[in-house]
Deep mutational scan, measured.
Amino acid sequence: QTVHVKGVQYHFPNPEEAVKFALKVAKDLGGRVEFHGDEIHVE
């Protein structure tokens, strides 16, 4: 599972961890989380 944050990719073997990370980052940055297939983008 890959999380993209402002052009940087973070790889997580566990999808659940990836989602938790993405939600935390989005909250910290005041952004939103978008799901694109296997990828999660924080915009």
Rank of each mutant, 00 (worst) to 15 (best):
Q9R: 12
A18K: 01
E16R: 08
T2K: 07
Q1K: 14
A18H: 00
F35Q: 05
I40A: 02
L23F: 13
R32I: 11
G37L: 07
F12V: 01
G31C: 13
D38K: 12
I40G: 01
F21P: 04
G31F: 11
V8Y: 09
V8T: 08
V25G: 00
V19Y: 15
H36V: 12
L29G: 05
A22T: 00
T2N: 06
I40V: 04
H11G: 04
G31P: 00
G37T: 06
A18Q: 01
V25H: 05
V33S: 01
G37I: 06
V8H: 09
E43V: 15
V33M: 07
H11P: 04
K6W: 12
V42I: 10
F35N: 04
R32G: 04
F21L: 02
L23E: 15
Y10V: 04
G30A: 06
F12L: 03
H4D: 05
E34P: 00
H4K: 08
A26G: 03
V5N: 02
G7L: 04
F21N: 03
K6P: 02
D38G: 13
N14C: 11
Y10H: 06
G30E: 06
Q1E: 04
G7S: 05
R32Q: 08
Y10I: 06
A22S: 02
K20F: 07
Q1S: 14
A26H: 02
A18W: 02
V25N: 03
H11E: 06
V19W: 15
I40M: 05
H41S: 06
D28S: 12
V33W: 04
R32A: 06
F12S: 00
V5L: 07
G37P: 05
L23S: 09
K24A: 13
K6Y: 13
V33I: 12
E39R: 07
D28L: 14
H36N: 08
N14K: 05
L23G: 06
F12E: 00
V33N: 01
V25C: 13
L29R: 04
V3G: 00
V42F: 03
V3D: 01
V25R: 05
E43N: 11
H11Y: 14
D38A: 11
K20T: 07
E16K: 08
H41A: 04
Q9S: 11
P15Q: 13
P13Y: 10
E39Y: 07
H36W: 12
D28H: 12
P13G: 10
E39H: 15
I40H: 01
A18G: 04
P13K: 13
D28I: 14
I40C: 06
G37F: 07
K27D: 08
V8Q: 10
Q9E: 10
A26S: 04
G31E: 03
F35V: 09
P13I: 12
N14W: 05
D38H: 10
L23D: 12
K27N: 11
E17R: 04
K6T: 06
H36I: 13
D28N: 09
D28G: 07
K27S: 10
V42G: 01
D28Y: 12
